[in-house]
Design a protein around this nucleic acid. Structure first.
Lengths: 338, 338
DNA sequence: TAAATTACCGGTAGCGTTACCGGTAACGTT
DNA sequence: AACGTTACCGGTAACGCTACCGGTAATTTA
């Protein structure tokens, strides 16, 4: 009920000026040790807390990072935890906003955080986003902005990304090494950068092993279990059906698995399966699904570190691009021979 | 690069006073339509955005809700999404902080958000938290605070909760009806309210069906898969081993499942199993695990609505307690007869 | 001893905004 | 003609804080 005490209250109580109180609180010089002590004890008593608001207004920085993510699934939640970790340590507070993969929400969120609530942004762009004006506005304001995870090449900004190409390559090459030849891929929406990179990795692996890519085995579908299920059903109906499937996410892998089981086919013998993200669920299903693991926590930490660096740097760091390597975790769903 | 335009800039450019600009922008009366139009068009040109900071300082409210959660697992992420939903609609921005189940982090987060960053809190308390001074400080400041999910009875505040007792009851009664008699429970830490409620529901169901509770079948262990695994191994070593296990979370259910499989026992015949939360994973494992589903999204929305209400109400609403009902989803792991 | 330095403190302006009050015209009312 | 009403606008203070400058007394230096 009692209002929050301000330096003015302390000044009045101690019969000194607010300037002096301010200095005492900030451990600035030019203040008598006794005076400082008096201020400190009184502020303790009143449980004084400086107003971040007033401070931010004065110094024109909020010490807050705006984080915009499409959702908070396993991978992104882990990344956010990584961001949180280093941000807290560096004295920053994080504001997380979910765009729900919606362009509109993303714009609203950006605009909101933009009106002097944050010092900059760490962003993973929504899959719906094809135009980047709202993000460019951030940059026009001279605010630091780091993009991570969903790294779209149209945006000129420091980036922290997974080597998705390599992930796709590893998964595909592994399937090839296991003897699979007609390898299908369930990719995501066509405008989604991370999907295309994984697809490119897939194609590169095929080419490397002189396997001709079959367009009918390349399927674009929405990033979710149900669509993946349906797409897989279709794939398995082909006269020349695939003998392996690489899905670009674990949710899709699960959808594919359900379709495969429903068709009475077995993994890894009839069909090999590899997913992406290494979510906890994939190690629990039967058979356990191989998956490309990304260092999500590390990636989040890296993004935050980069942000802090960009914050302190005067020069723009738009050319910085940090790429972390994924790691294939092989499990029963794709392991043909012991 | 160009600084954000302020009303002062607009005033200067239009040769009118800042007061007038302010009024024009706010659609206040006492301003000539032409003047207003001029202000509006210019502010559009300069892409003027009012400073939330200055506004907050002036009006002493930030239109921001601080949300503190122990983590961002499936259930909580869903709840947060619900909070987000209604908060956005009501013109509020949310700040999500993870305490990582750590008391210290929880305190730091609270303190940070407290220095005039938020208008109030929506909280799910960490499992480590046994003393609530940091939360009581919020209330002393007269800020609205709603607790949800992890609702500890020591805190006097409006609450939104799941009927955990009922959840425990439903799960246990279901097992009894399926013919199980020696039903064990894997509960969480002893100071965790939601755990105790589910345990009470378990006990109530046993009593209702005149089954004597066996203390050796009541195990408290940490809220995670590994501990649950070990605890289950121990349970299965008992001379009189349980014929069913009810775990207080799905992560724990998975741990239990692994132990059961390892022991070469089968579900649901040798052992029945029921989890809690209905995370996506439990429907995918074999056998699919029965689980108590909570209306997480709805619960989040309710909490936010209650918060907004408490915000606008002058009178304290500490006695309000909204309880939502869970729903048991029966799957193969506990379904003995077709 | 005079001058210069130091130690300490206070006043003021400003960050961007709104609330409040006061002021000037141009009208209408009696 | 004198007054009250509008319609419109500007100035000032305030929100809580810090930066900056200036001032006084005590202490040191030359």
């Amino acid at each position: 009920m009692n209002k929050q005490a301000t330096i003015k209250d302390i000044a009045k109580a101690l019969h000194i000026s607010i300037s002096t109180v301010s200095r005492a609180l900030r451990n600035a010089p030019d203040v008598n040790p006794e005076t400082r002590q008096a201020v400190l004890t009184l502020s303790e008593e009143l449980s004084y807390q400086p107003s971040r608001l007033a401070l931010s207004l004065q110094q024109k920085q909020t010490h807050t990072i705006g984080v915009i993510v499409p959702n908070l699934d396993y991978v992104l939640a882990t990344m956010v935890k990584g961001i949180d970790e280093v941000a807290l340590e560096a004295g920053y507070t994080v504001m997380v906003c979910q765009s729900n993969e919606s362009f509109g929400r993303e714009m609203v969120n950006t605009r909101r955080l933009l009106d002097s609530l944050v010092d900059g942004f760490i962003i993973s762009v929504s899959s719906e986003t094809k135009v980047f004006d709202h993000f460019k506005k951030i940059q026009r304001k001279g605010m630091p902005m780091v993009v991570f995870d969903r790294v779209d090449t149209d945006l000129v900004a420091p980036k922290v990304r997974l080597d998705n190409h390599d992930g796709g390559f590893q998964a595909t090459e592994h399937l090839i090494e296991q003897g699979y030849r007609r390898i299908a891929i369930l990719a995501g929406p066509k405008n989604l950068g991370i999907s295309n990179s994984r697809l490119d990795g897939y194609l590169a692996a095929l080419k490397r092993h002189r396997i001709k890519a079959d367009p009918s085995l390349i399927v674009h579908c929405d990033f979710n279990q149900q669509y993946a299920y349906e797409a897989t059903i279709d794939l398995l109906r082909l006269k020349q059906r695939p003998d392996a499937i690489f899905t670009i996410s674990d949710r899709m892998a699960i959808g594919a698995m359900l379709a495969i089981k429903e068709k009475g086919l077995s993994m890894p013998d009839d069909i090999g399966l590899v997913g992406f993200n290494n979510e906890p669920a994939v190690s629990l299903v039967t058979p356990a699904i191989s998956s490309v693991e990304q260092p999500a926590f590390e990636l989040g930490k890296t993004a935050a570190k980069l942000f802090i660096e960009a914050m302190h740097n005067e020069a723009p760091m738009d050319d910085v691009e940090i790429t972390l390597k994924p790691r294939l975790i092989v499990r029963a769903s794709s392991l043909k021979k012991g």
